[in-house]
Design a protein around this nucleic acid. Structure first.
Lengths: 153, 153
DNA sequence: TAAGATTGATATATCAATCTTC
DNA sequence: GAAGATTGATATATCAATCTTA
């Protein structure tokens, strides 16, 4: 084993900055969405549904698109069905499957929330970055995501 | 109002990369901690406690140090007290206050989990970044945090 | 057997309401 | 009244167990 390699000062600074971002940015965007009538989880699912033909997606595919586990989706969709944002239907091709369909109320809800969300995303993120910074950040995130994905294999 | 300014392709790319990071990095670090016996929330609180004199901090101050709401801390400490990681004591100076003290079991728990956590932090973050990238990222995060903090005032 | 999906239990986060003490 | 803290209700996330169908 041996003594672990602790973070030096420069490394600590960036790590704390990233933790701070994680702790402050997402809650702020979530609050913005809530004010406009949707939770972050609801918004996450309504985006791909609103872009799909007929607002219809198979649960399995929706899981993949948003990077969620099936169980998480199932619980969340149950709550959203109660709110009238989506409905579940049988899958014609595969009797195991389940289809999620956006309701008119669901479409109205995301159309009401989207402009405020993109505005907040700009105000607290995109519009604060230079073009170069955007490119650096994209490269860094992709590198980390690749490392995380490689680990799974 | 007017039509909102949607994200262009470059902006969408970085935004999705950051969302992906948010969705994959933190859960991976959390899983690592869980394997070593602590949840992310427990680790977050045990770090400042283990660095405090006598492992003792006032609830109010612990809140500030980790950026949590009082209610959140209160619930979390209640669970950790049940697990034997901390105990609550009366505050001598201020009868309204509440002191949180690290137990020997709590100290043992964080000392067992810390090496694995710093190793995972290195593997999936720090060691994947160049010095220049670290500096860019620090600047960007601080700028965003400043914008978020300014908004509150 | 594996894939798709649901369910129940537990841990966590947020909010409003409350209570005590400053 | 404001600050510090707790509590209960609700929403969310994760895990294990289960069920059905491929």
């Amino acid at each position: 084993m041996g003594e672990p390699r602790w973070l030096d000062e420069r490394e600590q600074r960036v790590w704390r900055a990233v933790i701070g971002l994680h702790q402050k940015l997402w809650p702020e965007l979530e609050r913005q969405l809530i004010r406009d009538g949707l939770s972050g989880a609801e918004f996450t699912l309504l985006v791909p549904l609103s872009e799909a033909p007929d607002g219809l997606l198979r649960a399995r595919d929706l899981c993949r698109m948003v990077g969620w586990e099936r169980s998480r989706l199932s619980h969340q969709v149950a709550r959203m069905e109660k709110r009238g944002l989506v409905v579940r239907e049988a899958c014609a091709d595969d009797a195991r499957g389940s289809m999620i369909r956006l309701t008119p109320a669901g479409r109205a809800a995301i159309e009401a929330a989207a402009p405020g969300h993109v505005a907040a995303t700009r105000r607290y993120f995109v519009d604060l970055l230079s073009g170069e910074e955007i490119d650096v950040l994209t490269r860094v995130c992709d590198r980390i995501l690749t490392a995380l994905a490689d680990e799974k294999r």
